[in-house]
Design a protein around this nucleic acid. Structure first.
Lengths: 202, 202
DNA sequence: CGCATAGTTGACTACGCTCAACCCTGGTGG
DNA sequence: CCACCAGGGTTGAGCGTAGTCAACTATGCG
């Protein structure tokens, strides 16, 4: 029983599901909006971001197919961030009240939900760790190492580099420069949107 | 039924509880240690921190009485961070297997656990947002605003300022300087470990 | 073909880090 | 009771590096 697989869900919850299509760039919800529902990405890609009064922006999550979004709505009345589609996307919409009931009635579902949340906290903790690395060069390397699948040395980007830069908390200029420098130093090799780590990375 | 209140727990879980006392500075677990148990702080204060290879450190959480620690052990085999007591502390120790069973058997408990996790993700997201503010002055103000209880304008620190600085991702020197500057500008007032925001903060 | 957006590079600036010196406090022991 | 010490707190000076602004090229996409 998994939140992301409607067919696996109990009837009460399955029947309450609706869907929503989003064009690239379309906003799903805004920070502060009343939160009655939570979402799972069915296809495409959503970006959750927070904006500070000074105009700074942080990417909290990039949600791809199967990932859930706005679980915090279960315990809060409003959404804590903005969410928008980076590409044309389709999301599954779950009623908050019905989901809460289902979580109580179906231990499998609750377990799946808890696992999602635990992984989300892990992911956020990793990003926080990444941000603590000050030098752009080190941060980029750290990022590449954590992003490359275990055993792999190649990272493929399906989004513009400037978006990756903002994930990293760097300006695009600094990110480009840093990649160029790492390539000049022979530490990485770039082919289009694909980056390979050359040295035997620890 | 709350994880942090042993008396409220079902017998199977309540009987499996043990306790551990920690001196100030004592380590509860290290990053990478085998994770068989999770914890709730009964008294005192724990700090969870991650260390990068380059020697940088990030504080992931400061856990006080009632807060849970290392929930991720439920789904991972090892602890993802170090945990140590900042002051003499006492923690409740829960067996991971028994807790998992209890979460399936007791919806109230699962609900409490989910709520804890949701709040933790919120808290991590807030720290990430804080880190995205670059200027020390703005970051400190942001921090003071988010730390002051709603409606209040005063923040009391029960830990050394240098620890707060590291929470903020600033060196102690920069933090001291920034506080001094804000005080000179009349924006805050300091009395010992207590800081008051003067202006009508938005 | 033209426009929008991503990517790239240079030059300058701002600001946080580092190192270093010093003060102040509380605690310890002679 | 004082001397000493350790740690937190504070301030100064100089450096390194990420940010910013700006100009330009490359790459789609209508």
């Amino acid at each position: 029983m998994e939140l992301s697989i409607p067919e696996s869900l109990p009837p009460a919850l399955r029947d309450a599901i609706t869907y929503r299509e989003l064009e690239a760039g379309e906003v799903l919800f805004h920070q502060g909006d009343q939160a009655q529902v939570i979402f799972v990405v069915e296809s495409g890609r959503l970006r959750l971001e927070r904006h500070t009064k000074e105009g700074k922006m942080v990417v909290l999550q990039v949600a791809r197919a199967g990932e859930s979004v706005a679980e915090s709505a279960l315990f809060f009345d409003t959404y804590p961030s903005d969410a928008l589609a980076e590409v044309r996307s389709r999301v599954i919409v779950y009623s908050k009240q019905i989901l809460r009931t289902a979580l109580r009635d179906y231990p499998d579902l609750a377990e799946d939900f808890i696992e999602r949340l635990v992984k989300k906290t892990q992911s956020l903790a990793s990003r926080l760790e990444l941000r603590s690395v000050r030098r752009a060069r080190d941060r980029v390397l750290h990022y590449l190492l954590m992003t490359a699948l275990p055993g792999e040395t190649t990272v493929n980007f399906d989004r513009p580099l400037k978006d990756i830069a903002s994930d990293l908390g760097l300006t695009p200029e600094v990110f480009y420069r840093t990649l160029a420098r790492l390539e000049r130093e022979g530490i990485i090799t770039r082919v289009r949107q694909q980056i390979t780590l050359n040295t035997s990375a620890a």
